[in-house]
């Protein structure tokens, strides 16, 4: 799981600030120009294709139409996004705190942590959103807790497993050093195991951040408050109002990316030593 956990690592490297003020701007240009060109080209092509082949709006709306709808609908879409974001963040915090707590409690007993693995794999293979109707029944369909608990389940296992990994997969020499100081278990936990687990934890948190936004939206498909983004999307899609649906999708993407970026920044702040920050001059 961990090998794909840090999904965006390749581009993160690209987003990193590189040393050397002189070459900095050229570097940045080299990094951001190609995607920007692709973006513009794709939009132009999209618009052109829809115009030339007279594709009906309900099949594929033009970017210009989506943009117009986005502006027109922004007073609806933004609050809806905020509403859903609250569920996503609430569930994310709940799930990751629980994951970290259980990891700290069980990491001492390898067998317990190992016994959790099959559950993690099982839950990972389950479409968690299928739990949505049950959570709606448990907490009430409009209760944000119903969606938060779905998100929490999605977040819980990756966070727990990665934290356990980080707490246990410590360099043997680092532990021997502590032994030579006759350090207490608590000191080893605080000074070796926890710092060692932070990179693992953050890679799980980063993946979970985008998943939790998606999880919140999808769980709203099974019913939820009328202010919610997922409810809005499924209603508009059912009415073939795809301009509106696309506006909501854009909001959803932006929320996911923003959430990810926040965690990325947090990671940088908390772990100034981390490997990914060791920017090197490649050329």
């Amino acid at each position: 799981m961990s090998q794909v956990a840090d999904l965006a690592a390749p581009i993160e490297q690209e987003l990193l600030p590189q040393p050397g003020a002189a070459s900095r701007w050229r570097d940045r240009l080299r990094r951001f120009l190609p995607p920007a060109i692709v973006f513009v080209l794709a939009l132009v092509l999209w618009e052109a294709v829809v115009n030339i082949f007279h594709i009906e709006g309900f099949l594929l709306p033009k970017p210009s139409v989506i943009a117009a709808t986005f502006i027109a609908e922004s007073s609806v879409v933004f609050p809806a996004g905020l509403f859903t974001m609250r569920e996503a963040v609430g569930g994310f915090v709940l799930g990751s705190l629980l994951g970290i707590a259980i990891a700290l409690a069980t990491a001492r007993w390898a067998a317990v942590a190992e016994g959790m693995m099959p559950f993690a794999i099982a839950v990972n293979s389950t479409p968690i959103v299928a739990l949505a109707p049950i959570m709606n029944q448990w907490f009430g369909i409009t209760n944000p807790l119903a969606k938060m608990s779905i998100v929490a389940v999605i977040v819980f296992f990756p966070v727990m497993i990665n934290t356990v990994k980080g707490l246990t997969q410590v360099d043997a020499a680092a532990l021997e050093l502590m032994r030579s100081y006759a350090a207490t278990d608590l000191a080893v936990l605080l000074r070796v195991r926890i710092p060692n687990s932070l990179p693992y934890l953050f890679s799980a948190l980063k993946v979970s951040s985008t998943l939790s936004v998606i999880g919140a939206i999808v769980s709203e498909y099974f019913g939820g408050s009328r202010e919610a983004l997922g409810v809005y999307i499924s209603q508009q899609a059912a009415l073939f109002h795809f301009g509106e649906a696309w506006s909501a999708i854009i909001i959803a993407c932006l929320m996911g990316i923003a959430f990810y970026a926040i965690l990325l920044t947090l990671e940088r702040l908390i772990m100034p030593w981390h490997v990914s920050i060791r920017a090197t001059d490649e050329e």
Partner: peptide
Amino acid sequence: ERSLMPYIVASQTVPLLA
């Protein structure tokens, strides 16, 4: 990679259901 990777990553933030 430089020009497309960001969109590949962003693609996974799109809620499928939508």
